[in-house]
Design a protein around this nucleic acid. Structure first.
Lengths: 342, 342
DNA sequence: TTTAAATATGCAATCGATTGCAGAAAATTT
DNA sequence: AAATTTTCTGCAATCGATTGCATATTTAAA
């Protein structure tokens, strides 16, 4: 039941002119008589004409479309970033094609290929936890497509990047814990193939170092980035002969939530006996009791930044794109879970 | 710095054959010699060929793209639905173009036009709270594009629909409150131009009626669908000479959260003095204290359902699309905020 | 061996919009 | 009034892939 759509030829025929003029009028070119232009516009409206963007893009060799690849669309941080990008790109008439990699490199590669096929002008990506190499990203560049990495970036790959200063944030977070009097601070680490988690560890170590606290290996836990894994890690940590007096879930607030639940269940008083610090400022962190201290990443703003960066780079097409990194300083949000009554 | 991409002509030239054969090989047609096909495939890989989807779609008159319009991308319910759609469509090689209407009809119209321009095969929409008429949606159908409404649907518009049974859910929720012994149950209503909110009110009234409870007008509050408005409404309600003993925030969990905060601040004991019931089963509802009773809408599943519905309809192209509604039964999640110790 | 059928390949048009070039018509200058 | 410039409009090619039709080649059947 496909209806035939109105094309510029239909308009041209009706007005006894050529498609060229119609095209010019619709693109508001100066090379059409003003009267003709108005007439064309009027007729286009009457016939309910809608430009075929496929044809237009094909001809022009650009799609005014930006592809986005994130591990999960329905994860707060990412959906916020996307909202930010949408906001900024919409005004400029750009479209977004969104893909989720589900944390799998295999799907990530497929997403990249789909987006290249779609002739997107730019690909914005936060790589999956599973990604070990990045031939597929090199490929993007080889196809002359702009590539912007955000948050989870591959450092060696020279592209535009928008990141959080994870090291600094982590440093401030752990410093805060120490200043609150915590001395045995455990760290829940994320997958170390992602730089963001490495950096958070560096910040943690730097803070311990600054305050001359020892690094205790048994308090550093690998890969505890879901609520369940956070809970499990906490069970072990709190059963140690010398349990920690604070846990920094550098992986996520979900992990911190797992910590909180187990700690409460095991009868540890938060924040007095145990301090808890999360990462990402998920909405729920201010609702738990006690509310959880965390780090805000300005996710929507991050999205806007990505978009603005793209547009700025596009302005000077002639010059080669110079790899550039914009680092956003996250903010420590101090709540009850680390506020010891002194 | 645009690099020239490999086209089927490049491959054809290199192998001294025509583009037709290349195209056939790449589409796995039977009308190419097996050897030639393999050779073409190999060469395509070598030259890092990527199909130009724009050209292909233009020629084929379909885009294998689905457009989605939601009020807000970064709202849990919607991002979950999108994730569900993505999941189901990805396997079939479909792309998603996502737009947000920001609850504004004006932007919604623009989104619709963009998607029509993009030649999407289908538009999936949950209308904005601001939408009063629906010429723009009629327009979608006029262009021969499949239209699927979900959650916030316009009843009169005959399209495919995937909804929650809001009335039933609301009825069960209020019945539950009554069975817990609550007698003066307030209702926080959403914008009544959205059917979902009307239906929730109907369910509320039906439950009162079933248990022969009177409808008390001063307990029914208009438009309280954000946390702030929910809080404000609660302040008024609890200051009444005869305050309610339960509040059903039929608008959202955010609203219910506002209720909870104000109630706690005003010294009302939840659930004993005041029962609170929300809507949507946002993640935080199980984290508040007390945890909030709410209604789960199976959002990811809803997305899958939308996608499946589309594909099923597509199978029989010849026959006209018959308007059809799939109603998903939401589930009451009973938590502490309405569990009175008897 | 001749004829019919099956298989492979090429030709050329098509999808709809855009744009460089050329020429006609009108407006301006000398 | 002639020469020059400006303003419009049309022609035709182009973007890259697809596909109906025709033709050539091979294989199978009579």
């Amino acid at each position: 039941m496909k209806k035939k759509r109105t094309t510029i030829y239909d308009i041209a025929e009706k007005l006894n002119i050529t498609a060229s003029s119609v095209s010019r009028a619709l693109n508001n070119s100066n090379y059409v008589n003003e009267n003709t232009k108005q007439l064309i516009l009027k007729t286009a409206a009457e016939l309910n004409y809608k430009r075929n963007t496929l044809a237009s893009n094909l001809r022009k060799g650009q799609s005014k479309t930006i592809g986005i690849i994130v591990p999960r669309i329905n994860q707060n941080f990412f959906s916020n970033v996307i909202a930010g990008i949408e906001d900024a790109t919409y005004e400029k008439g750009y479209n977004l094609i969104i893909c989720q990699s589900n944390e799998s490199q295999e799907k990530e590669i497929k997403c990249v290929n789909t987006l290249i096929n779609q002739q997107v002008d730019c690909i914005v990506i936060s790589i999956s936890a599973d990604s070990s190499d990045y031939k597929h990203l090199k490929n993007v560049l080889d196809h002359g497509i702009q590539l912007i990495q955000f948050d989870r970036v591959i450092d060696e790959l020279e592209t535009l990047k928008v990141i959080n200063d994870n090291e600094q944030a982590s440093f401030e977070a752990v410093s805060h814990l120490i200043e609150q009097g915590y001395k045995r601070i455990a760290l829940l680490k994320g997958p170390q193939n992602l730089d963001i988690f490495k950096q958070r560890k560096v910040g943690y170590l730097a803070a311990l170092n600054k305050y001359s606290l020892p690094v205790i290996d048994e308090l550093i836990i690998e890969n505890a980035w879901t609520k369940e894994l956070g809970a499990e890690a906490t069970r072990k940590l709190l059963s140690l002969p010398e349990p920690p007096d604070a846990i920094f879930a550098s992986t996520s607030d979900f992990s911190a939530l797992g910590v909180l639940e187990v700690a409460t269940a095991m009868g540890f008083k938060v924040p007095n006996q145990l301090g808890i610090l999360g990462y990402a400022n998920e909405a729920f962190t201010e609702l738990t009791s006690p509310s959880i201290t965390t780090i805000d990443q300005f996710s929507v703003y991050m999205g806007r930044t990505v978009a603005d960066l793209y547009f700025k780079e596009m302005e000077n097409k002639d010059t080669l794109v110079v790899p550039k990194t914009i680092s956003i300083k996250p903010k420590l949000i101090i709540r009850s879970s680390t506020s010891r009554k002194k």
